[in-house]
Amino acid sequence: MMKQKDSGPAGGNWVPLAVTLAIQAMVSMAALTMPVMAPVAAPALGVSPTYTGLYLAIVYIGAVLASLAAGSVVKRFGAIRASQFGLLLCAAGLALCAVPSLPVVAVGAFLIGLGYGPITPASSHLLALTTPAHRMSLVFSIKQTGVPVGGMLAGALVPGAMLLIGWQGALLAVAVANVLCALVSQPLRGQLDADRQPDQPVKLGNLLQPLRLVFSHRALALLALCSFVFSTVQQSLTGYLVTYLHESLAYGLVAAGLALSVSQIGGVAGRIAWGYVSDRWMSARPTLAMLAAIMAVSGIATALLTTSMPTFLVLAVLVVFGASGIGWNGVYLAEVARQAPPGMASVATGGTLAVTFFGVVLGPPVFGAISGAWGSYRAGFAALAVPTLICCFALLRARR
């Protein structure tokens, strides 16, 4: 596997890792900004906060399409340029979401998805070339901490920003942060995009190639299908937690946002810890099976939270839920890169992520529908235990 020389400004693996982590954090913050402000923004738009699931579905429909095209885009323009495109699309989408019109917000959500989709395939392309095989899970897990870091930033900063400049001003502030990240990454483009292929075609006919690759390899197909469930859990937790704590446990918006940040801290710690465990003690699939079991227990525990519980106990449950429901991603992506044919890491990642994002498209609306039918978000969190346990058994069976 290729590795960068330890000279120049990008000596070692830390530069690709640092820049991809920062970009991942920004687009993740962009995707979660509207869900975090849902208790305020939804009434301003004339809808219920339960429609957060539909907003996320639109975001990830865009992400599905972008991830399928990401392999070709990365090959033609380079991973950094593809990431810059993504950051600017997220900024444009956030700006449109500040317009108090549901159709315009829907277009903004779709643009955010188009920006979010190519980020992980682009980073997988860079890291697969610069990371030794025995460190793959840990390095990919560290990079994927950008997702919960983005959630932490959204949970910690967006509620306070709303109090200062309103929900629309907060959206524009996050948009500016994405643009600045795109500008900061520009000096690295020449070196990190040196392998780009300017004659690589980008056309609609290539969109199904990543899915064909994934489903022609049994190991990749299993990982993709489990990621469908895991992404449902992750997005249901991050998308509905603030509203659940606010409406069912009487938390204030700032307190609920900070609780979301605590769950994201669990996700950050979990991603690094599980990457280390997978590299040193367990292979990827047993690690993912263990995480699926923890997700099931955490979903039920979250459903059983009450207003009389001490805050530290609520936060402890959310830390464990975050460590499993958010912490799985790095181990999964590293295993996808391992199982991919040589030179096809970005294509395989794009194909598996398309399935992952379908989980986000379908899962949160189903979560919202279950919660609405039962009159409580508790039902939605409890229902997450069923598919995660199925994944646990499937991964253990495949391992044997």
Rank of each mutant, 00 (worst) to 15 (best):
V277F: 11
G166E: 11
Q235N: 14
R81W: 09
Q24V: 13
W374G: 04
A10G: 13
A323V: 07
G252S: 15
A22E: 05
M2F: 12
W14C: 02
S28P: 02
L94H: 06
T243V: 14
V64Y: 03
F215K: 00
Q339R: 15
P49H: 04
V104Q: 03
A79W: 03
G169L: 04
L32W: 09
S28R: 02
V319P: 03
V107D: 00
G155S: 08
M344C: 12
A348M: 01
P43F: 12
L333D: 02
Q168Y: 11
G372R: 10
L222N: 04
A79E: 04
M162W: 06
F393N: 01
P198G: 09
A18W: 09
A303Y: 02
H246R: 11
A10R: 05
D279W: 08
G115D: 00
F85S: 07
G270H: 03
S283A: 14
L291R: 00
T349Y: 07
P159I: 11
S216W: 03
V229I: 14
G12N: 10
V386I: 14
P35Y: 05
L395M: 14
Q197F: 02
M309L: 15
H125R: 05
D199T: 13
W328F: 15
G11T: 03
Y276K: 14
V254Q: 14
V36F: 09
L204Q: 08
S101E: 09
T131K: 06
L129P: 00
W14D: 04
G78I: 07
G113F: 09
A79F: 06
L362D: 01
R338C: 07
T20S: 15
T302R: 05
A373V: 04
C392Q: 10
L241W: 06
S371W: 01
G322E: 11
S124T: 14
L102M: 12
S72G: 07
A177N: 01
P9F: 14
V336M: 03
Y332T: 10
Y332S: 13
G372S: 15
Q235K: 10
V386N: 00
R81T: 15
A255C: 08
P103M: 06
D6V: 11
V386G: 00
V214Y: 00
Q264V: 04
